[in-house]
């Protein structure tokens, strides 16, 4: 498979006054179309920075992000982001939040009724069509995140970037949303990059797990392929030897080889 997204020798240095901090160094990664790749690492290892670099929200210091062999250095709708804290606009209803994105991206290519159908279709995809007239303050955290995913999906991105999308949710809601993400991926076959803190989440969802070393100057420590057949069922996997092995590998990486010293 051809390289879909390529991270080519990326490094990122933040400057504040005279002091410089190198957050990321020499990141190389190739992501194929339709893959789910998660990035895991201790806090402060620059995972979110890397995602923001791919999204184009902050510029790279050296290296390049290549999407289908074209360099990207500004944000754009072909790389949709699902933000950690949902980032829905509180003055708009659920429907209007998705409509803001759809009208902007498909305003000229789809008719009004087609756009309406499309918005409702995407809300349906995350099972939120029933709450389309509610405001974000009137729905739960998990529902907000669902709407955030619908908004990102609705602009038909080439890559969906998820920045710890379920980090702020309770375990049960998180499991629900993980199942939804797997279902959506099974239907749409979209490419996703997800940042997570959660080892189980990484193993359950991803085709590959990118493990980051500790910062500063963090880089990719190891990449683990998760060879589990899809569709994956959370209950059946609990006793699956491949699942257990993958889980163990990630845990060993995080707690033996790259223990987070400051956390101790």
């Amino acid at each position: 498979m051809a390289a879909y997204l390529k991270l080519d020798h990326i490094s990122k240095t933040f400057r504040r006054g005279s002091s410089e901090t190198e957050v990321l160094r020499d990141i190389n990664l190739v992501i194929n179309e339709g893959e789910i790749v998660s990035m895991i690492g201790h806090s402060g290892c620059g995972k979110s920075t890397l995602l923001n670099l791919i999204a184009g929200l902050i510029p790279v210091t050296t290296g390049a992000v290549l999407l289908e062999d074209r360099e990207v250095n500004a944000p754009g709708p072909e790389r949709a982001v699902v933000f950690q804290n949902h980032s829905l606009l509180p003055w708009l209803t659920v429907y209007d939040n998705v409509a803001l994105a759809v009208d902007k991206v498909f305003g000229s290519s789809k008719s009004r009724s087609e756009r309406r159908q499309w918005i409702l279709h995407n809300l349906d995809l995350v099972q939120m069509a029933h709450a389309k007239d509610k405001r974000p303050s009137e729905i739960s955290g998990g529902m907000k995140q669902r709407v955030g995913i619908a908004r990102a999906l609705a602009i038909e991105p080439k890559i969906l970037l998820l920045d710890e999308p379920f980090g702020a949710l309770d375990a049960l809601t998180r499991a629900h949303l993980q199942d939804s993400v797997m279902q959506i991926h099974a239907t749409l076959k979209n490419t996703m990059i997800m940042i997570t803190h959660d080892v189980d989440e990484a193993v359950l969802l991803s085709d590959r797990i990118v493990m980051m070393t500790n910062g500063p100057s963090a880089t990719i420590g190891d990449v683990l392929s998760v060879n589990l057949a899809r569709p994956r069922k959370r209950l059946e996997l609990v006793a699956d030897p491949d699942y257990i092995a993958a889980r163990e590998a990630v845990l060993k990486f995080l707690y033996e080889r790259h223990r987070f010293v400051e956390a101790a």
Binding site: F83, S87, L89, A101, V105
Partner: peptide, 21 residues
Amino acid sequence: PQDYRNVAEVLRLNHFEFFWK
């Protein structure tokens, strides 16, 4: 909030749309 600015940037809202929406 920076989040709203990020949303606007990802959607590539122009200045007028950003001001208004």
